[in-house]
Design a protein around this nucleic acid. Sequence first.
DNA 1: AAACATCTTGAAACGGGTTTCAAAAGAAAA
DNA 2: TTTTCTTTTGAAACCCGTTTCAAGATGTTT
Lengths: 331, 331
Amino acid sequence: MASIREVAALANVSPSTVSRVMNGTANVDPEKRERVLKAIEESGFTPNEVARSLFKKSSKTLGMIIPSIKNPFFTELSSAIERTANQYGYRMILSNTGGNLEKEKNAISMLVSMNVDGIVLATSNAGLRSYLDNCKTPIVTIDRLISKNASGGYIHCDHYEGGRLAAEHLIDCGCKSIVCVRGLDGISSAKERFAGYLDVCKENGIKEQSIICDYDFNEGLAMTEDLLKQYPDVDGIIACNDMVAISIYKVLHRKKIRVPEEIQIIGYDNINLSRLMTPEFTTVAQPIEKMGVKAARLLIKKESNRQQEYIFSPELIIRETTKLQKGADAQ
Amino acid sequence: MASIREVAALANVSPSTVSRVMNGTANVDPEKRERVLKAIEESGFTPNEVARSLFKKSSKTLGMIIPSIKNPFFTELSSAIERTANQYGYRMILSNTGGNLEKEKNAISMLVSMNVDGIVLATSNAGLRSYLDNCKTPIVTIDRLISKNASGGYIHCDHYEGGRLAAEHLIDCGCKSIVCVRGLDGISSAKERFAGYLDVCKENGIKEQSIICDYDFNEGLAMTEDLLKQYPDVDGIIACNDMVAISIYKVLHRKKIRVPEEIQIIGYDNINLSRLMTPEFTTVAQPIEKMGVKAARLLIKKESNRQQEYIFSPELIIRETTKLQKGADAQ
DNA sequence: AAACATCTTGAAACGGGTTTCAAAAGAAAA
DNA sequence: TTTTCTTTTGAAACCCGTTTCAAGATGTTT
């Protein structure tokens, strides 16, 4: 509320002196310093961070933009980024866009205006590309690719390999009729995972079967009904993420179809919940924690980012929704 | 990137004219308007939202502060608020604090600096009280009470009644040894729910048994082990929220204790997940949606806030983790 | 005492939109 | 043609913290 000029008047010094006391940027006469401190105390003055960042070009803040706050993959990712940012004295603010292009542009422009020191974008709207290429604020895209020119780099987990891992595992588990539940078409990660699945199918001479589903459990519920109608002999399902895997299980359970005896399910992401479910879900893990840390460190310049692309490896986590034919284990 | 003065120079007009063209605040000669529009186009100018809000006192933005982004209660709440804000042309930004006092102060001061039009605070740090009382930006506290003076009002669900509902239901279900898993001591909502439980115990002459647990499933996992040691004859558990209920179930299932046959569980909040689980969880529902809409509307001044306190009613949702002795049903 | 070095301090400019105010230009009325 | 009213326009002030720059004050050296 109170401004630096009011504090200055109260302490009978100039605004510059108040600023110097607050920031310790220069010596101030001890007696005046006392007066200033007292005036700050009395007026309950807190500096306006925005006016401050308007001049300096940093706000010690990272911005994060996610498509869905209800998807634990993104909340776990943002937690990792925030924790890392905090370690370096930065804060993080979050903006949820639901994948809406206008909201995304809007969020970016607000974040840039705030002089955030970097933005991590976990969103995949192709319409953002030109926006990104012209943005002076470093942006790292994570999980999904929009533009290779994004100033801050592109962090992702090898989705193609993840798709392969899932498909190979179901084959190892004896599945003969595997259905791949693909993410929406516009999402680069979904495309790559599907490509991995496709190649494994070809190599093993199995039929390619797929169905599209948004990353949301309500969508998952409805989609599963369709899936069962369309592929009545299905015995293995690759879900596009763990939330959808959970909703697939829900529908199967309601229909008294046993998992993994009749149909096996493998999820994707390895969110905390996948381990908390009963049964525990087999899934392809993304190193969420590591990816988040990397993103934060890149933006805070704790790591050189000469490199443009950072690829992490997925890992198969075998739990209770699939059943290996013989031998082997993981986790 | 480009500033309004650069655009002005390009179009050969004054900055004021550019501002007028952008905002339609006054008539501008059609020919000059064209020049300005063209200059904006060419320079890729986007107005600096912060500089703008530094002058105007509004930024068409709501801020939200939550203690844990991993707790679906808060993400569902923030989704409701955001959706409502968007309907009125406002955006929302989110700040996650982990309940840390310093981070909360920090978040508030940043939000205030940004000239957000209102803050919704779902956090419960008593140390924030004086902060809130002096804050010129309207703040509504939701779910948890900090100060009755909070400018924007206090929205909550009747926690005492919720505690009663849960306890009475377990009694109706025939439980003889009920353990109440209480939230942390500093949290007002947790205290009130516990008070409700306590009164029901007294009225029915049952033993009061409780254990403290943070709102987090990892805590829940560890706490459940203690609970079983401390109260080996427990046959009914009131969880402090749905996430904890899920982790309690997890531990019981691992130990081959059947739910609800041997131990019945009731959660709290009615997050989406509670319905997605197998078995589906009995819970005390908070009207998350309604509370969020209310908070947003209050701050956006779509509703007068002469009133200071808005109390919603909890609702018992009976599902599969409890078993009524005779008759009745819901949802 | 004069000359020089050092420290402390406030005025002013800055960053980027917005708005007020008064001047200039144009149009209508006398 | 002159007066009056209306419209358009830019200069300048504003929001608020920071920083530069130069002046003032103090202290040190010869």
